[in-house]
Design a protein around this nucleic acid. Structure first.
Lengths: 166, 166
DNA sequence: TTAACTGCAAAATATTTGCAAATTA
DNA sequence: TAATTTGCAAATATTTTGCAGTTAA
């Protein structure tokens, strides 16, 4: 069975190798925002004959083709998610790294208007909220993508240290 | 004469070395969003006895103290600017890399409300617009911070390829 | 058959860190 | 003088790339 992303690849005339088929399937089945490391882990579980260089090359290619979108949630690693029709934004839980998606049509109009006022056509935009859960009782372990390396984890903790924006 | 940032450093009880004084001054005089490489360049112009490791350590320290804020405008390098009282956001010209600041108080309230609705306290937020100048006649050279390395420049071009957000 | 793709290892880039020497308070 | 800070070089981390061999169309 052909995965959704694989179908898109074929539509754009990409050569479908075994590795690509596996990566496409992993991406199709992901409901989170995995980084390359995590994609590589999931892909090699299905087929060990995949190198991390291929994963890097594939996500880059799919991003160029508009099939994937690259995200940066802090922590130094790029994350990927399939391009969606509706726009959505992200709220990142600074304690767990979990990412929550939300929509806000009004926002988009507003930003379009702001860009226009400054004399620009909007090419893309980035809106990310970093927050801490209200009842900060139980803080479960990380579930989103791979656990960051010690240095990167420190970097992220530095990054959103609980100061409120003024 | 003591620069604004130096004064803040002293207030927080930081030991003021010659290197720190120079870096503080460079930061105080910057009206853009330099990356570490660029800070290093400006600092060594004033005093050659400064290593890039010290610049990295200093911006990190000042960020922890709340004196500086780190920004990520794509292109893989962290940029820094002094913490301001009023919040402002950024519009990045995808052709030149130039950064334009703008304010929008309503936005901030709106985002606060969104986070609340999802059960979170807002810790920080990131709002960046990437746009292309309306009359794309003359496209002047880069003026913002250091010119990116070839690989990084390619990365940025890949990143905001002119597709409109849907 | 041939243009595109892959694996591997090395390179490029950005940032951090161990340690001995220097410096501030 | 004691605790910090610095410079240097080496270590880390992420991503890209050169090249020779493989594979899809």
């Amino acid at each position: 069975m052909e995965s959704r992303i694989e179908r898109l690849c074929v539509q754009r005339g990409l050569k479908m190798t075994g590795q690509r088929r596996v990566i496409a399937r992993v991406l199709s089945e992901a409901s989170d925002h995995p980084d390359v490391e995590e994609l590589y882990r999931r892909a090699t579980e299905l087929d060990a004959r995949i190198s991390i260089a291929t994963v890097y090359r594939t996500v880059r290619l799919l991003e160029e083709k508009g099939i994937l979108e690259r995200r940066d949630f802090g922590g130094g690693r790029a994350r990927y998610e399939p391009s969606e029709h509706g726009h959505h934004f992200h709220l990142i839980d600074v304690d767990t790294g979990r990412v929550i998606e939300f929509e806000d049509a009004e926002h988009e109009r507003l930003m379009q208007a702001i860009a226009e006022r400054l004399g620009f056509d909007l090419v893309s935009l980035r809106l990310e909220l970093f927050g801490r859960r209200r009842d900060a009782a139980a803080v479960p372990a990380e579930t989103e993508a791979a656990k960051p390396s010690p240095a990167r984890r420190a970097a992220r903790e530095r990054e959103h240290s609980g100061r409120m924006p003024r």
